[in-house]
Design a protein around this nucleic acid. Structure first.
Length: 517
RNA sequence: GGGCCGGUAGCUCAGUCGGUAGAGCAUUUGACUUUUAAUCAAAGGGUCGCGGGUUCGAGUCCCGCCCGGCUCACCA
């Protein structure tokens, strides 16, 4: 129920309004006044002659005298970001698609109706204007308005114009306001779009085709994670939201789509943090007839170019560090443990006894991974490829022919964060069956994240999966690095939050609507 | 889930030792025909996140809860 229901019994007649209701009512009433002037409060199509960005791009170099000598007529539109009324004239800034341009309205130069409209408009309203370009006394390129249009009313007040939105909760819940108020936030999402476009362009130019595989899967796999469960009513079956597209993409390689990729959402039912959102976007790509060495070279090219496309340089500022994506170091996991181990004795990662003595894990391979993650991961600030992973932690990777305790796998780290994972794909169906059965054993011992048996996947592989390299790159984390964002929520438009409950706006609008009759 | 920090006007933030809830922006009214976070004058606007408790008296102290941030654990 609205605020003034509770308060209205204190006074008869007009209810006392809270500020918020008062502002809402003022703007709501103003719709009637705008209509009375002959304007529509919510306009239709508006054919502008120039976007604000175009005006700025084309006429920023043109000097005042030239603009006065050869008048440039323009028809522009945008949201009102500032208004400075000065008696019988005034200035305002319009914003459109990230660009900002000043307009100047002088009573002498517009119709009486347009002047009344100018006096009625609020910060945040969306308007259009006919006029011509000129430069103000201080040299700012502006539109001298001859005719005003009204395109959309704002009923709610805009964020404070100087500080914008500081409350992070508000920024995440009402991202539209964040985008209006803070150009930095807008820039992050524009950069994210450029990153995705760059990856697509690079993959397409190498003959990869984009595919879409199921997000609702009867069996989940391709990663170690707990899934979300949903239900299909008509078929009466439980389905899992995918934790990875991997097994479907490799079926496609069996089917002769030799180079495939997918950029889409994965869902993992895990905790949230500055590096984890329950739904996140991954690029996965598979290339037949290559292996993890081929992928390493490709990855270095891919990351260098995406950094350049997103930021203009392969060297990217992240916090206090400059990450150089033009020069990616390669280090085996055992080398990394030797390098970053800080114990009194030098590390002996080739020695199973040493590994087991320094970890609580059951096998030497798991112990090596455990030790690496503890001592090495957060020190990998510069972009680094870590290769040679123990077989135990990689049920879908192909073993190294010379050392079957290891698989031909690598991960990419930067700023202490894992941003990618790649390997030569296991393509022997017998071995795959054994690995799945090993995972089933782990599952029976209570490991909820152990892989499920996927018999159709084994069937597909039994038709022959060519030698293949496959890789996944976390788009959210890559975007964090390339936009200098410290939280994954800053690069996801609508990160997962608990629901906020009743907002109360519908009730207030209903009341205004019925009060109006 | 644990630890720490936060939630006060539409927005950004103050609020001392427990003693009548403040500023700037925004809003309203007035002045102002080239302003730049326009300026000047005045006014209105508060469920101090929610619920209990202590107290003569709670934004402030105590307890519980809700929402968010950081961090640890888990994960990519």
């Amino acid at each position: 129920m609205g605020h003034y229901n509770k308060k209205s019994h204190h006074s008869t007649g007009a209810f006392p309004l809270s500020l918020e209701d008062d502002l809402l009512r003022q703007r709501h009433d103003r719709i009637r006044e705008i209509e009375a002037l002959g304007f529509r409060p919510y306009g239709h199509r508006f054919d502008f002659s120039h976007s604000l960005a175009t005006v700025l791009a084309e006429y920023t170099p043109v000097e005042a005298a030239q603009l006065d000598a050869n008048r440039v007529p323009v028809k522009v539109c945008g949201r009102l970001r500032t208004i400075r009324r000065m008696g019988k004239a005034g200035f305002a800034h319009l914003t459109q698609d990230g660009a900002q341009l000043q307009i100047y309205v002088k009573k002498d130069l517009v119709s009486e109706t347009d002047w009344k409209l100018w006096e009625l408009i609020d910060l945040g309203d969306i308007v259009g204007a006919d006029g011509y370009l000129f430069r103000t006394r201080t040299g700012e390129l502006s539109v001298h308005v001859e005719k005003l249009y009204f395109l959309a009313k704002t009923l709610l007040t805009m964020p404070e114009k100087f500080h914008g939105i500081e409350d992070v909760e508000l920024r995440y819940r009402q991202r539209y306001l964040d985008l209006i108020a803070s150009p930095e936030s807008r820039a992050v999402f524009v950069a994210r779009a450029r990153i995705v476009a760059s990856l697509r362009r690079q993959l397409e130019s190498r003959g990869f085709i984009e595919v879409e595989t199921p997000m609702m899967q009867p069996l989940y796999g391709g990663a170690a994670a707990r899934p979300f469960v949903t239900h299909h009513n008509t078929l009466d079956i439980d389905l899992y939201l995918r934790i990875a597209p991997e097994l479907y993409l490799k079926r496609l390689v069996v089917g002769g789509l030799d180079r495939v990729y997918e950029i889409n959402r994965n869902f993992r039912n895990e905790g949230v943090s500055t590096q984890h959102n329950p739904e996140f976007t991954m690029l996965e790509f598979y290339q037949a007839y290559t292996d993890y060495h081929g992928l390493m070279d490709f990855t270095c090219e891919l990351l260098k170019q995406v950094a350049i496309d997103a930021t203009g340089s392969a060297a990217v500022q992240y916090g206090d560090d400059t990450l150089d994506f033009g020069n990616i170091r390669r280090l085996s996991m055992r080398e990394a443990v030797r390098e970053f181990w800080t114990g009194p004795e030098p590390a002996r990662p080739d020695d199973a006894a040493w590994l087991l003595a320094n970890s609580h894990k059951a096998t030497a391979g798991e112990a090596l991974t455990d030790i690496f993650e503890r001592v090495g991961e957060d020190k990998l600030i510069q972009p680094t490829i870590i290769y040679e992973y123990p077989v135990e932690t990689s049920p879908l990777s192909k073993q190294n022919p010379d050392n079957p305790a290891f698989v031909d796998r690598f991960e990419i780290y930067a700023a202490g964060m894992e941003i990618g994972n790649a390997y030569t794909e296991l393509n022997d169906p017998q071995e795959q069956r054994r690995r799945f059965e090993m995972q089933l054993g782990m599952r029976e011992r209570g490991d909820e994240e152990a892989h499920q048996m996927d018999e159709d996947y084994i069937r597909a592989m039994s038709y022959g999966l060519p030698p293949t390299g496959g890789e996944g790159i976390g788009i959210d984390r890559l975007t964090m690095l390339l936009t200098n964002s410290k939280s994954i929520r800053d690069v996801i438009l609508f990160p997962l939050l608990r629901p906020e409950g009743d907002i109360g706006l519908a009730a207030k609008l209903r009341e205004l609507d019925t009060a109006q009759g």
